[in-house]
Nucleic acid binder design. Sequence first.
DNA 1: TTGACATTTGCCCATATGGGCATACGATTG
DNA 2: CAATCGTATGCCCATATGGGCAAATGTCAA
Lengths: 115, 115
Amino acid sequence: MARASTTTDAFNAIAEAQRRDILSRLRAGERAVGELARELGMTQPQASKHLRVLREVGLVQVRGEGKQRLYELEPFGLESVRDWLRDFEQPRSEGFDRLDECPSSLAGGGGGAHE
Amino acid sequence: MARASTTTDAFNAIAEAQRRDILSRLRAGERAVGELARELGMTQPQASKHLRVLREVGLVQVRGEGKQRLYELEPFGLESVRDWLRDFEQPRSEGFDRLDECPSSLAGGGGGAHE
DNA sequence: TTGACATTTGCCCATATGGGCATACGATTG
DNA sequence: CAATCGTATGCCCATATGGGCAAATGTCAA
């Protein structure tokens, strides 16, 4: 078997950097295909193909506006990815690992023993 | 050009469901290749190949233990994915976006009861 | 050394890709 | 109706894949 289709799920869809770029652009609001293509330096057919993939996995939404087709982020499209990632959360609270990135004023208190 | 290599980055690596399964299994602790293969119903060479991909993108770590090679999750391997996803957080509270900065409440020595 | 076990790698295939290009489709206007 | 603009599709190719299998490599024990 070859690699799974890019339209299999959001994981495969966002494996392509250009598609991630498209999604990032769309964070600022809906865009027409040609506009996206120009902004991202790809040909119009390429943008269209990528957008189709993103649409088939539910990551973007289309809206016809005159001759144009405006693509927009699907609010919960990335939820499946986010859910999967959540299971890999670092056990952060355990000890405030990244606390050392904070100003030293934290350590100035009374010994800092919060136990 | 064909699709990007699965070893290009974590995004491409986790596009494969079986590799996500491997990572999920490893959440419970380190495993030998054959063990993973049996648990996930794949051949041993397949598991080995998947693990290689995961290792090349920094998602897992290996440790030789006798004849076996124990694979383990790389704690911050998925950070790049998580970072990218973070930009797509729902604009939930309008005011808690920059929470990753050091909250000044921590510095306050007084009644600083956090958690 | 040989033998047994665990893992990796090499080779084959069928399949899906992304890029480029031409072209078909769709909507709007005249 | 035709003309035009904006998008989508179809076709070609080179490339990377994942699966299966055999063989190579590694590690340890007699």
